[in-house]
């Protein structure tokens, strides 16, 4: 892991930043409770919002990291995206089958799935919208695509009874 993915702490202002964007520590109780609030409040619109917001976070952060120090190749951009996910507590993603043309990825113990199971128990549908959106954002930056060309969804989720979380990222 490189220092480039560790947030910068300003102890006087009590801020953390990565790629010029604010980073904040929060626990799984808040993360899954807030997500459930959004899902309950927005219904069918929630998955797209949650995925899109994560994609934008990845796009903003990873493109700034690219500007500060290019990763070197599309695969390296995606690997850096996975490193950020793991360093920041979202789970270790296997992105060996994910490239600038899309593909698949898995996370054995994704934060949102582990957190959801711990707080609410099993659910019927996948819950890792943040991970899906983040991976899509990494592909957007890796390929230099406009964001609407990349679509990601979680095909199986630990929180819905699967052995791990699996993601499909498609580039159109």
């Amino acid at each position: 892991m490189t220092a480039a993915i560790v947030p910068h702490a300003d102890l006087d202002r009590s801020t953390l930043t990565l790629g010029g964007r604010r980073v904040v520590l929060h626990c799984h109780h808040y993360n899954v409770f807030l997500q459930r609030t959004i899902e309950d409040g927005l219904g069918a619109h929630a998955p797209a919002l949650l995925t899109q917001a994560a994609m934008e976070s990845a796009r903003a952060t990873l493109s700034k990291l690219e500007a500060e120090g290019p990763a070197g190749s599309p695969a390296a951009v995606i690997a850096r995206g996975a490193d950020v996910l793991a360093h920041h507590g979202f789970g270790l993603a296997d992105v060996s089958a994910l490239g600038e043309r899309g593909g698949t990825a898995t996370i054995e113990r994704a934060h949102y799935a582990v957190g959801w199971l711990a707080k609410f128990g099993r659910r019927a549908t996948p819950c890792c919208f943040f991970s899906a959106g983040w991976l899509a954002g990494a592909v957007v930056v890796a390929g230099g695509f406009s964001p609407e060309r990349v679509v990601a969804r979680e095909t199986e989720c630990l929180a819905a009874g699967a052995p791990r979380c699996s993601f499909l990222v498609e580039v159109w």
């Binding site: 964007r21 604010r22 904040v24 626990c27 903003a60 507590g89 113990r109």
Partner: peptide, 21 residues
């Protein structure tokens, strides 16, 4: 890739994400 601490799982999350949603 998890951060267990204080009996919780922590994340270093992205403020923009919370704000947008």
């Amino acid at each position: 890739g998890l951060i267990p601490a204080f009996g919780l799982y922590l994340t270093k999350h992205f403020a923009d994400y919370y704000n947008r949603i």
